[in-house]
Design a protein around this nucleic acid. Structure first.
Length: 762
DNA sequence: TGTGAGTTGATTTTT
DNA sequence: TCAACTCACA
């Protein structure tokens, strides 16, 4: 255990050793907070606390992954539950769904799905969206849920024109979710908070089960999260929270800064530990950050200090235009990388809004500097992925209306708007789910016989899929075929569709990995809730709550482009903080209240404190906005920085870099279009390039084919059944199977690949 | 029912 | 600027 206490400061050691009772760790940026948490967990385990009694909650998947990794290193095999609040709640809700009127196989709607449900609810109430937008109503509902205000309790604030509409729509929206056996992100928290509040039996059980609870980034908790953490810390009040009020940047999401500011009031017996020594940045960078944040009033003062060297002055640069800003920065980076003074991965560019990334992408590409952008289009948000997943959602939860509406006519199968509306009416009258309404389409008089036939065929297809629940990869394969989705994309010859197919292939890989990781159910039908269905649920939960297909990777030698929000928790040797202009940082929507302004200041504080050695803050005199070039006003925050620590450069003084000097030998890299990892080497035998005829002629038993060469949709040849097409793949290793539609009388066969003699034709 | 053009409108941050 | 959405038409 001693090694867990080595190289810790007194304050860090105190936090690591303090075990029973509430603990508040106020951790400044770069103060080794994660180290403290992970060492604390490891130390407790070393001291005999069973891992399963420890629960560590984070806000982002990124933070959870990092923590898991580090805990695993310090305390291998421990059963500590580490994850995001949302994941934890999703799990709890699977168990206690009935208490809040849900079934265990409920669907988690992402933002897009929720918006869809909201639109449907509005349409059914005939709410005219002319004065309001679904977005603003959605935000209001989200805010209410984060504050645990139920539809019944919702009272509009007087003078808010939106309030009345929200009051009307919120219950309808919630009813729509209930009817679909679905929850949105906020519900995950709200439902669990409700259960904990209203059901003391459950509360006490969880309190006892999770005796030691840790909450990371406590300054970001909203009321719901606060209630959850608190409720599980009554009988065993070993709640340890870490956070930094100065890094609270999620107020807009319902985060309540008071949760951390008042922690000492909530738990009078609390031990407070301050981690104020910074191990990350130079003295100058830290000084700039400290000076800026001192302009905030609502905070807990900390005395940030570092033993690191003074470092270079922080640069404050004004460019003429946003274009010049991007190009000069790109050139500067290129100029450092080319001679090998720096790696691309040493650099990060932070901006307030995603829209600002564009010029930097362009400039870096031009300059031949490899970069990676965080949070471009999320993989799981892509249309084709959402479409295919919607089929799975529907299979898992046939009540899911949003999923049904998404897939019922995609690919187009002649079921149009009118038919759907008629079905919806029928469903509403008879209080049926949409799918059940579709089941009895023949009794819906208004639907034409021709349409009814198409609907029946659709329902039959869904039923076939439902009865085929097994490994996800295999189920996906069936979906792609039965639905005609694959054929739709393959037939078009469209380049975009090619890319979509590639993305779907990627999804199949994700599915396969998931199957392997979680031990896919073998059989198809036998699957009870424990087996196939639960497995599918878990997969959908993961895809809804995790966006980690494009995890930011430190190893990649690329410049990182990201928003200030995304930068939290990270560090880089060299940081460019760009577009620090009035209206962007602080953002114009945040200028209405002093509170929001302080949050913007914290956002800048977070950005500054990511830098280890070099920091440049910049702005442009002119910036294109909505296609118009407008003069940009310097951010008021710039006036709050200590000029003594800084090197201020006006446009005249900016260094001119010849773009020609920059080598352009490496290809620019884009996050999504990155080459996939090479497939495992295929056995030498002709890479399957011979024609079917040639192969048929040979009639000999070929060398064993690596099961991994088979892909969805591939044309294959079987020694006995002849030519066929791969419908679905499943299983792993020696158990890997292919479902093949043969052109011969053999029809559809599921073949164990090992020793089958099956081989790819093309 | 599907497509295409033309318009509109909107641009913060995330689970 | 650009993407998404509507409305008219085939």
């Amino acid at each position: 255990m001693e090694h867990l206490l080595e190289n810790l400061t007194d304050a860090q050691r105190e936090a690591v050793l303090y075990q029973d009772g509430p603990l508040l760790i106020l951790a400044g940026p770069g103060s080794g907070k994660t180290r403290v948490i992970t060492h604390r967990i490891a130390r407790m385990i070393a001291d005999g606390v069973p891992g399963h009694q420890i629960l560590a909650l984070t806000f982002t998947n990124k933070a959870a992954e990092e923590m898991k990794l580090r805990v695993a290193r310090l305390a291998p095999q421990s059963e500590v539950w580490i994850g995001t609040f949302h994941r934890f709640c999703a799990r709890m809700l699977r168990k206690y769904a009935r208490i809040v009127g849900l079934e265990e196989n409920y669907t988690i709607y992402d933002t897009g799905d929720s918006a869809q449900a909201l639109r449907r609810a509005m349409a059914q109430l005939h709410v005219d969206a002319a004065f309001t937008s679904p977005e603003s109503i959605g935000r209001a509902i989200s805010w209410a849920k984060n504050n645990l205000i139920t539809p019944e309790q919702y009272q509009p604030k007087s003078g808010n024109p939106l309030g009345g509409v929200v009051q009307q729509i919120y219950p309808a929206y919630q009813a729509k979710l209930a009817g679909s056996n679905a929850v949105d992100f906020d519900d995950l928290l709200m439902h669990v908070a409700t259960i904990l509040r209203q059901n003391d039996e459950v509360r006490a059980a969880l309190d006892e089960r999770y005796r030691y609870i840790m909450v990371d980034e406590y300054q970001d908790t909203n009321l719901a999260q606060y209630v959850i953490a608190r409720a599980m810390s009554c009988d065993f009040s070993n709640l340890a929270v870490t956070g930094d009020p100065d890094q609270s940047i999620y107020g807009w999401r319902g985060a309540n800064l008071n949760n951390i500011l008042d922690f000492e009031k909530d738990f009078p017996a609390v031990r407070v530990v301050r981690l104020e020594r910074n191990y990350r940045s130079t003295k100058r960078i830290l000084r700039v950050a400290d000076e800026l944040i001192s302009h905030n009033l609502r905070r807990k003062k900390k005395a940030l200090f570092t033993e690191n060297e003074a470092g270079e002055p922080v640069r404050l640069v004004t460019y003429r235009t946003h274009k010049e800003e991007a190009e000069m920065i790109a050139a500067e980076i290129a100029g450092e990388i080319a001679p090998g003074r720096r790696h691309a991965r040493d650099y990060a560019v932070f901006y307030r809004t995603n829209a600002l990334s564009r010029s930097f992408e362009l400039a870096l590409r031009e300059a031949g500097v490899p970069y990676q952008m965080i949070n471009g289009v999320e993989f799981f948000q892509r249309q084709e992925i959402k479409d295919v997943l919607a089929y799975l959602q529907l299979v898992n939860n046939p009540h899911d209306e949003v999923a049904l509406l998404r897939v019922i006519n995609r690919p187009t199968r002649g079921i149009g708007k009118t038919t759907i509306e008629r079905l919806a009416n029928h469903a509403q009258h008879r209080r049926l789910s949409l799918l059940d309404a579709a089941r009895e389409v023949r009794h819906v008089e208004s639907v034409a016989a021709r349409s009814a036939k198409l609907v029946t065929a659709f329902v039959a297809m869904v039923d076939r899929l439902i009865s085929a629940v097994g490994p996800i990869e295999e189920l996906l394969g069936l979906v792609l075929n039965e639905s005609g989705y694959e054929a739709m994309l393959k037939g078009s010859g469209d380049e975009e569709d090619e890319e979509r197919l590639a993305n779907i292939q990627e999804l199949l890989t994700v599915a396969r990995e998931f199957d392997e990781r979680h031990g896919a159910p073998r059989g198809t039908r036998s699957a009870g809730r424990r087996g196939g269905v639960g497995h599918l649920e878990a997969f959908l939960e993961e895809t809804a709550l995790v966006n980690d297909t494009d995890e930011w990777e430190t190893q990649l030698d690329r410049v990182t482009l990201m928003t200030l929000h995304a930068s939290k928790g990270l560090e880089f040797p060299c940081v460019y903080l760009v577009a620090v202009e009035e209206g962007l940082l602080p953002h114009e929507r945040s200028r209405t209240s002093a509170e929001q302004l302080e949050e913007e200041r914290r956002l800048m504080f977070v950005g500054i404190t990511r830098a280890q050695q070099q920091l440049q803050i910049s702005r442009a005199e002119y910036r294109d906005f909505r296609g118009e070039r407008k003069p940009a006003i310097p951010s008021s925050f710039l006036m709050e920085l200590p000029r003594g620590e800084m090197d201020v450069r006006q446009p005249e003084a900016t260094r001119v870099v010849e773009i020609d000097e920059v080598p352009v030998d490496h290809e620019p890299v884009f996050r999504r279009e990155e080459p996939r990892p090479p497939a495992p080497a295929t056995p030498s035998f002709g890479s399957g390039l011979r024609t079917a005829a040639e192969m048929l002629g040979e009639g000999q038993t070929p060398a064993a084919v690596d099961p991994d060469v088979f892909r969805q949709g591939m044309v294959v040849l079987h020694p006995k059944f002849g030519l066929g097409k791969v419908i679905a793949l499943g299983g792993s290793g020696g158990d890997r199977t292919a479902t093949v539609d043969f052109t011969s009388a053999a029809g559809r066969q599921k073949i164990a690949l090992a020793g089958s003699g099956l081989r790819p034709v093309k």
